[in-house]
Each structure stands twice: as C-alpha cells, then as structure tokens.
Simulated scan of single mutants.
Amino acid sequence: MGRLEDAKKVGLREKETERLIAVYPYEAGGTDAEIEKAVSDWYYEQYCSAEEELRNAYVDALTEEELNANK
C-alpha cells in the first residue's frame, strides 16, 4: 500500500513551502497514481488557470492538525 491509499483525506501541497493549497473534497480511492491524477484533474477543473501552480505542487495526505481544521 502507498502513502496516499491509507490517507483519511488528501490535498495539494506547494513543493517549496509545503503549504496546503487545497483539500480534495472527495474520498480518495485507488492507487497512489490514480489518487494523484484524480486530485490534479479536480484542481485543474476548479481553477483552469492553475496549470503553473500544479507544476509546483504535489498530492499529499493531510496531517491530523489539518484534518481537524478542515472538518
């Protein structure tokens, strides 16, 4: 199992600062690659101008603190 498959909730994080950019609003399921694609596709659909931002971001599991803040 991968790091994302076990996550309760995932989101996009900025590579340089590790700042949480967005929380994926749906249940993430599948392999890590499938989850990464689903989150990236979702974010791009929401913000069509976000192509550059997506290049500098990665999909990551939310921390417990972030989970509590995003309930």
Results as ranks from 00 to 15, higher is better:
residue 1 M to V: 08
residue 2 G to M: 08
residue 2 G to Y: 07
residue 2 G to C: 12
residue 3 R to E: 15
residue 5 E to C: 06
residue 6 D to A: 13
residue 6 D to R: 15
residue 6 D to K: 14
residue 7 A to L: 05
residue 7 A to W: 03
residue 9 K to G: 03
residue 11 G to C: 03
residue 11 G to S: 05
residue 13 R to L: 10
residue 13 R to H: 09
residue 14 E to K: 12
residue 19 R to M: 12
residue 19 R to W: 08
residue 20 L to G: 00
residue 20 L to Y: 01
residue 21 I to D: 01
residue 21 I to H: 03
residue 26 Y to W: 07
residue 26 Y to D: 11
residue 27 E to L: 10
residue 30 G to M: 04
residue 30 G to A: 07
residue 30 G to P: 01
residue 31 T to L: 05
residue 31 T to P: 01
residue 33 A to T: 13
residue 38 A to C: 06
residue 39 V to K: 00
residue 40 S to N: 10
residue 41 D to I: 03
residue 41 D to E: 15
residue 41 D to C: 04
residue 42 W to C: 04
residue 45 E to G: 09
residue 45 E to Q: 13
residue 46 Q to R: 14
residue 47 Y to P: 04
residue 48 C to H: 11
residue 49 S to K: 11
residue 51 E to I: 06
residue 52 E to P: 04
residue 52 E to V: 10
residue 53 E to F: 04
residue 53 E to Q: 15
residue 53 E to L: 12
residue 53 E to T: 15
residue 54 L to Q: 02
residue 56 N to S: 13
residue 58 Y to L: 12
residue 58 Y to M: 12
residue 58 Y to E: 15
residue 59 V to A: 00
residue 60 D to R: 10
residue 60 D to V: 05
residue 60 D to T: 09
residue 60 D to G: 09
residue 61 A to L: 04
residue 65 E to M: 07
residue 66 E to S: 05
residue 66 E to P: 00
residue 67 L to W: 03
residue 69 A to D: 14
residue 69 A to C: 07
residue 70 N to M: 04
residue 70 N to D: 10
residue 71 K to T: 09
